[in-house]
Amino acid sequence: MNERRPTEHPDYDHLELLGRYLAGELTDEQTAFVREHLAGCPACRLELRRLARFLALEQDDELAAEAAWDRAKPTLDARVAALWSPSADQADQADQADRADQADHAHRANDLQPAGRAVPGTDWTAARNRRRRVVPRAQWWIPVAAAAAMTVVVLGINRVDFSATAPEGGTIPPALDTGGPLRGGEKATARFVLLRPIGDIAAKPDTFAWRAEQPWDRFVLEIYTPGLRTVYRREHLATTHFAVPDSLRSLLRADSTYLWSVQGFYKLEPVGATPEAWFRILR
């Protein structure tokens, strides 16, 4: 075995050796060889850990609970069963899923018995197309929602005052006029709130400030133009305010509009981001 970087895939012979090493199926000589190799090869050490973890997943009830395995199992069963019976009726699959949910673990294999004798590997396309319909969804509202969204956009555009001087990066989208969120979705649940600067301000800001209503240990602050070009990005902030340094002050131009937002981290994990706010420097 040659030494490898942790990112390269060891080839299958090495994996096979590692698998047999874990299972204790190697001769003493082979075991000694594997041990010696592991001592000098980070890639294989990592691979061994990964493989051991894979094998241990069967007993990991904690992760299974996190991953909602009990809820996912019927769906997965139905989809894999559909690989063999692409002609099966969709309703049958739903029934199968329901039954599978209640059936005993030991009897589950019976549900996988297909009606026909389709050989796996013959017609994957039909099965793949089908899988998207395993969970039926009402789709009549999509064109309606699209039409409504178009109406809102058109009405919104008509309300923009095109006579105003366009700030750097173009006209402010109407959604920004409130200083509110531009890209919605997950922002609605964020518990970080931007305080200042927001809206029209007389001079270049001295401080950026926000409020945190959930645990955090560091922040990333980003300032960008309405065209979403990043002007400034500051990482590893340990406070809920940021004093503007001269280097940033020189980047901000009067009579320009900027957007800014803050992303919060807690113990290495991102825990939320604020909605964007805008500010316009008048002088």
Partner: peptide, 30 residues
């Protein structure tokens, strides 16, 4: 198919959980 189904039955939990570790989402993991 019965043999394939048996392989599936034995490995479905491990494979699903393995996928979940990477996707962090139950639907994507399925």
């Amino acid at each position: 198919e019965a043999a394939c189904a048996e392989i599936y039955r034995r490995y479905r939990r491990r494979v699903y959980l393995w996928c979940f570790r990477y996707t962090h989402d139950a639907d994507e993991a399925v």
